[in-house]
């Protein structure tokens, strides 16, 4: 059996009266693209910072590639790269210098390291900014610098804490291409993001946290398929007008929302579609078209957390 890339065992973090993490236990398998999801204040960043050694757990242990992050922190940190959520700057050093210095902290120097830094700068489209200072860069570029800093020692496990927050679409795409490439090369990627479509597209497994508790831990596809609902989007004819509170109760109970794309209903998976069509017909609903689909990760997430991301 493989050593987990990251293993959380009964990790608890207490801040005064607040339990930020409540005995969290789970493993992340090596090579997995793993999503750590949850609403604001769920404990995602606390869990990541505890893994990174920036926060001390009140109790419990975390191992990265078999190395305890407290007792064997040197080896744990050598195998872990963290892209923090907050943008960080340094007013004294150029991007290239920062990367060289950061590599030095890990005991890395010489021609091979310089070559890797060149490659990182190139892959993250920072080559022409190598001599710039961090405060001269845009937010998106600063984010890329943080990714380069996290990868300077070529860690096996890369943690990205909200890497696309405030980043434009182009850069987001570049970042995901780069991250997917790292994943293909065997790196374990742990991602927190508020963009759940991205998490659904990228993550093989997800953990959902809420108020410091682990609410779900599954492969993304199982989590979605296990969801007890499917969704039916009904497109009424252009002339059809209706009020939600005038619909029969069975439809009102299943009504989710209405927008320019139609009316969305949530149905129990085992309910025959005919029943729904019958209720729509009985209600005099003038249906022009309809589409049925499974739940998205976002809908599963909302169902589990009861909160809007």
């Amino acid at each position: 059996m493989h050593t987990p890339a990251v293993s959380f065992q009964s990790v608890h973090k207490q801040y005064g009266e607040l339990s930020a993490l409540k005995s969290i236990s789970f493993d992340v398998r090596p090579g997995c693209f793993f999503g750590l999801l949850g609403p604001n204040g769920a404990g995602k960043s606390t869990l990541i910072n505890t893994m990174a050694g920036l926060v001390k757990p009140t109790s419990g242990t975390i191992q990265v590639n078999g190395h305890d992050v407290v007792k064997d922190y040197r080896q744990a940190r050598r195998t872990l790269g963290v892209v923090p959520q907050e943008l960080i700057s340094d007013p004294f050093f150029s991007i290239q210098d920062l990367l060289t210095i950061q590599g030095g902290y890990f005991g890395l120097k010489g021609r091979a390291q310089a070559k890797w830094i060149d490659e990182l700068l190139s892959r993250l489209a920072l080559s022409d900014k190598r001599n710039a200072l961090t405060h001269e860069l845009s937010g998106g570029m600063k984010r890329r610098v943080l990714i380069a800093m996290a990868l300077v020692h070529q860690p096996q496990v890369l943690v990205l804490d909200e890497p696309t927050a405030g980043v434009d679409v182009d850069l987001r795409k570049t970042l995901w291409e780069f991250t997917k490439d790292l994943h293909k090369k065997g790196h374990t990627i742990i991602l927190t993001t508020h963009y759940l479509e991205e998490a659904e597209a990228l993550c093989e497994e997800v953990a959902i946290l809420k108020s410091g508790n682990l609410k779900a831990l599954e492969t993304t596809s199982e989590l979605i398929s296990r969801h007890q609902y499917r969704y039916l989007r009904v497109i009424p004819s252009a002339t059809h007008q209706f009020l939600v509170n005038q619909l029969p109760v069975v439809l009102q109970q299943r009504y989710v929302e209405q927008d320019v794309n139609g009316v969305l209903f949530r149905l129990e998976k085992d309910m025959p579609l005919n029943s729904m069509l019958g209720w729509l017909s009985d209600a005099g609903f003038d249906v022009q078209d309809l589409t049925s689909r499974n739940a998205t990760l976002e809908e599963v997430f909302l169902d589990l957390t009861g909160e809007v991301e």
Partner: peptide, 18 residues
Amino acid sequence: IQSKMHGNLTFVMLSPIS
């Protein structure tokens, strides 16, 4: 204090420096 204010002390904290 500058490193704390700019946040770049995090880079040292994430490294294997004792």
